[in-house]
């Protein structure tokens, strides 16, 4: 079997803070194949972004990582800066939530794009400008020629996010880490940007790690999904499996607490309690205090991620079987 594009094994990330050690990512293992979209779903503080910050070596100095993350055959954990710099922005690219903070406010779109193309791809000025124009066209920015000489504030939020995507694909990445790429956008624009990401995957075979809190976004774009709670993967499966027949009570609770236009109004039912903040002692299942199915074993024994029912994997001692899942 061909090795996956990215293969993460037993990844653990800790932060040392003045109020103790925070375990942000706890024994996480997963993989992403070429051209695949993996949805990484979790709420704020779940550690979903920290997984990828750890992999890309972008943690603040107080973060420590253990485990392995093999990308294109190389382990990135513990790799030196120069090696990471050869990979980041090229084979491994990012798109963040807020394009306004990622773009330089005082420089034109052209100058930001061409700088990157000259630096990473060694193009001369003329070639870089032509390539910048091609990239803006590629992400469907209308009137691209005129937009090249604009400043970020002159563009709408959707256009800015397209510029960010143009930058991130400028060096032909194999994996695009998209962290809440549409969260800051208006709904009518969100769909356009998701469709653009889908197109890039289809046409250029770019794999996407789609980090989001929004099950709708995952449902639209992902092939497979992992659900993160308190730094652990609690469920993994294809998008259809996880969203249509969730087996982990947290996944089911998350789906049931999302208002959905395509479900009856009465279906909204919140998960009681609040997510833990990462400083708590880790014993047993982290979701147990909020879980209606929890029994004594859940408070004592950590549930490993395994396939207990079918192909779907879940970290739960008492997984929900098919018939008890959400009706589609």
């Amino acid at each position: 079997m061909k090795e996956p594009l990215l293969c993460v094994d037993n990844l653990t990330t800790r932060f040392t803070t003045s109020s103790g050690t925070v375990l942000a990512v706890d024994r996480v293992s997963f993989s992403i194949s070429r051209g695949e979209v993996l949805g990484i779903v979790g709420e704020s503080g779940s550690g979903k972004s920290q997984i990828f910050m750890s992999i890309a070596g972008l943690l603040p100095p107080n973060g420590q990582v253990s485990g392995e993350a093999r990308f294109l055959g190389r382990n990135l954990i513990g790799a030196d800066e120069s090696e990471l710099n050869r990979i980041r922005g090229r084979a491994l690219a990012f798109v963040f939530q807020d394009p306004m903070t990622a773009l330089h406010p005082f420089r034109t779109i052209a100058s930001q794009l061409t700088e990157m193309l000259r630096l990473h791809r060694g193009l001369d000025h003329g070639a870089a400008r032509a390539e910048a124009l091609r990239l803006l066209d590629r992400v469907h920015i209308p009137d691209a020629k005129r937009r090249l000489d604009m400043y970020p504030h002159e563009l709408s939020g959707g256009m800015r996010q397209r510029v960010m995507i143009a930058m991130s694909i400028s060096c032909n990445p194999r994996l695009l880490i998209a962290d809440e790429p549409t969260t800051a956008l208006d709904v009518t624009v969100q769909l356009q940007v998701l469709d653009l990401l889908d197109e890039l995957r289809r046409d250029e075979g770019i794999a996407i790690a789609l980090i989001t809190h929004d099950m709708g976004v995952v449902s639209r774009l992902s092939d497979r999904v992992i659900v993160i709670y308190a730094g652990n993967i609690v469920e993994e499966g294809t998008t259809e499996e996880v969203l249509l027949s969730p087996t982990h009570p947290y996944t089911q609770g998350l789906l049931a607490s999302m208002p959905d236009l395509y479900r009856p109004l009465s279906a909204l039912s919140p998960i009681p309690g609040y997510p833990p903040d990462g400083r708590q002692a880790r014993k047993g299942c982290m979701f147990a205090p909020r879980c209606s199915r929890a029994q004594n074993v859940c408070r004592d024994v950590f549930p490993e991620l395994t396939a207990r029912t079918g192909r779907q994997r879940q970290a739960c001692h008492f997984p929900i079987s098919g018939s008890q899942g959400l009706a589609s």
């Binding site: 769909l191 929004d214 449902s219 969203l243």
Partner: peptide
């Protein structure tokens, strides 16, 4: 209409 049809569903079959 556009607004309603832009709202994503957590049901992948609908999507």
């Amino acid at each position: 209409r556009a607004l309603i049809s832009s709202v994503l569903s957590s049901n992948p079959r609908i999507e």
